[in-house]
Amino acid sequence: MVDAPKKNGSLGQSEADQDEAHDGRRREFLYLAAGGFAAIGAGAALWPFIDSMNPSGDVLALASTEVDISSIELGQAITVKWRGKPVFIRRRTPDEIEAAENASLDDLIDPQADADRVQRPEWLILVGVCTHLGCVPVGQKATEVRGDFGGWFCPCHGSHYDTSGRIRKGPAPLNLDVPAYTFIDDTTLRIG
């Protein structure tokens, strides 16, 4: 690879050899240094373009939403939009709470106690997106199909969720997601 120019005259043979070897190491170092520098530069130039496709400032600014829950009666549910997705807010009946709390963890596909999924047992707040392939399950209205466990039923591929939003039957792998939320007071909920 190294084709160093032939030295003539005063240099001894071994000295010339040494010089060539030295030259080869230096060349390899230069290749690596130049290549590495170019790669870092290319990456640095590319990153802003990739990052530009991430949520922008105005999108992130809409990351939380406040909901007035004073008008929701026992057994009713409403759907609100948060980050472009539906969020289910359900005011559970004592029967529904009992069913959710009494379910054995051994029967669950994604075991999680009801107490870990709610802050106040009466209020169940879920991201209404099926964990299978992203459809919105039905069951918000009492007249809709609520599946075998009285929660929600996903019409796309038949996943059944219980009154805690946990997956009980069907292809979905995980429970419905619980978003970060806080009760500002008894009638106002902030999601996000």
Binding site: P48, F49, D51, S52, N54, S56, G57, D58, V59
Partner: peptide, 13 residues
Amino acid sequence: QRIMRDVNYGWLM
């Protein structure tokens, strides 16, 4: 204006 202010690196692009 949104590109200049809100989009990540929008000003640069």
